[in-house]
Design a binder for these strands. Structure first.
Lengths: 192, 192, 192, 192
DNA sequence: CGCTAACCGAGACGGTACGTCCCGTCTTTAC
DNA sequence: GTAAAGACGGGACGTACCGTCTCGGTTAGCG
């Protein structure tokens, strides 16, 4: 579905337009409101062309979401101390949750993952990868003695990322970038 | 929509059946798959009767979800020390996320909240109330000197509940009740 | 499909409109050009309503054609001599072939009958009944001695009706009512 | 459309295959069921190639039918007496109506002629030519005194051919070759 | 303890979107 | 230079629900 090196350049052109429109549609209207005919209208690509390239709503959404997910966070200065790296990763997550296509699609993605194995794999895999960066930074800090030995990197990463995600999907006020230091201080303590 | 004091007992009988069927439908098929005609078939109540009592899919779902949300968690021994109360609240949350109607509807609820103000208010309000119990326990601990003074009750509650919710909606493995002590230890530290 | 005594008067109202539009459509556009959506537009009845009452194009056309066929030719003075009755029947046939809904649908009907058993039965049955009136008139004439004994009523009816139909479907000039006497004279002779 | 003197022999080879497939398709599935893509599959010639040589369904069908029509009936012993020539011509017509590609395409041809001027001209022209042979035989018979002077050759030919065609397109039982003498006897009488 | 008003089920209605199929046009690649 | 392959926009197909509506049948509760 995402083959490169297509023979006919029209194919890639259509697919790009459709993927873009699909993400807009998903962000605006959610999983339930998402409609192939609406994507066709929005993208200017005929419905029959969409069905020529994807088997249906699920395949299209899964494919479109994959394009959002390829960039796995630019390297945030690997040389800095681990607490700074953690803060940087959380600022990036919080910033993305405030305003990005992925954040706007997140509720739809959560809902879709619940009922479709393909979306589920995509969604969970992406989150696991993203969280791993946080785990690594925390583990580095523990190894370097910057963080106390009783910090469990896995669980702590969960708590830090969880705070940000919780605010996005469970409350009316997304997590602000400004709040990151408070969060880090509360979870990791003033501890050295 | 949820008027008490119905004159005709048939009305309440129908509404109860429909609400129950609606929750089943929502848990099984999600927000997108939810259909009024399907609820009508499932509940044995005619479609026209459903539309007589609710204005549509959203109103029905919002009303049905309200019935799940009325019991705001029984008081878990307010006299215990605050760390135990925190663990108890998190065990309750984690248990619910592993298996309950509300957990099964959570993705649909998040999705619906994104696009409907009524559901949004309901969802956020419920979460705020639930989280507040955690905040209160943490604040009590800080006030009693059981927890360090640099613990911010609001943010810490967010991190603790967030870890559980994150695992429910962002990963394939929900938070296990057994993991609660590790979580609490990691976030609050072995600290006194 | 043609039940009388419907409960809901809307049903009959819709069906009448659709049948009328279907015949127009069939006459104008032919069997190949006939489209349900076009009938829906023409009749002002929604496509879904059409499919609620007929299983598809074939069933609708067969049903609509049946409404054309119910009137089996008014009694053309049974007391007249048989040659006059024959001429009267042929004038009626020729007139109908020059201008009537049935005539306009005839090519479509012939084509449809070729590929659908239901239409075939309808088409052949109607033609058999119609031709039988001619056979009867000719047989009466032979029995009464008005026509020579060597006239085979079956075959002669075929030749008389065939001349009219042939001109409708095989030539550019339909059979004119004025030509009936010539036809009858040629086939039955000036014979007494 | 039917250019002779093609330069590239591949062209003629493709066109021959397509015409043959088109006639099969037309006979099997009728005018409505006829599809260019189906003809392409059946003939092994690409759809784009078909559209290069014909403007569409109508042009292709009209062209293919022309190939059926070129042979205008071999001369059936012009020296025989006219009654025998009439019977011979009718036997040929009846035989063809029982089993031939042309007969199988006849309903589609009638339907197409109704809506397309090119097909109409072809169809009517062919029928006129074919019927003329019958008219000539009858006129010869009248001139030679073999048939009564009150036989109108035009109208009588119409009745004879009409009987055969009528049975093909209006009834379930095509005209049998065996029935030709009965038909001729009934229409022309035992008359001298 | 019978009437009547409300409530109910059944389902027709005009719509919209689905996913499939074919049309006729157009573009690319292989021979 | 021609053909095969097939993508494209378009539009009809027949299906499934949507939310509105009309229709009788039943049933609760008041008189």
């Amino acid at each position: 579905m995402a083959e490169l090196q297509q023979r006919d350049p029209r194919i890639e052109r259509s697919m790009v337009r459709v993927r873009r429109a699909a993400l807009e549609e998903l962000a605006e209207r959610g999983w339930g409101g998402f409609g192939i005919e609406s994507v066709a209208r929005r993208s200017g690509v005929a419905k029959s062309t969409i069905y020529r390239h994807w088997t249906g709503k699920l395949a299209l959404v899964a494919d479109a979401l994959e394009t959002l997910v390829v960039q796995p966070v630019a390297e945030p200065g690997a040389s800095a101390d681990s607490r700074s790296r953690v803060e940087e990763l959380l600022r990036h997550l919080a910033g993305g949750m405030r305003d990005s296509t992925l954040s706007r699609c997140l509720p739809a993605l959560i809902e879709a993952a619940e009922h479709d194995a393909g979306v589920r794999t995509l969604h969970h895999g992406f989150n696991d990868r993203r969280r791993q960066a946080l785990v690594d930074a925390l583990a580095d800090g523990v190894a370097a003695g910057e963080l106390p030995a009783d910090v469990d990197p896995e669980v702590t990463a969960l708590a830090l990322a969880g705070a940000v995600i919780y605010r996005r999907v469970m409350t009316s006020r997304p997590f602000d970038v400004e709040e990151v230091p408070t969060l880090v201080a509360s979870v990791l303590g003033g501890r050295r």
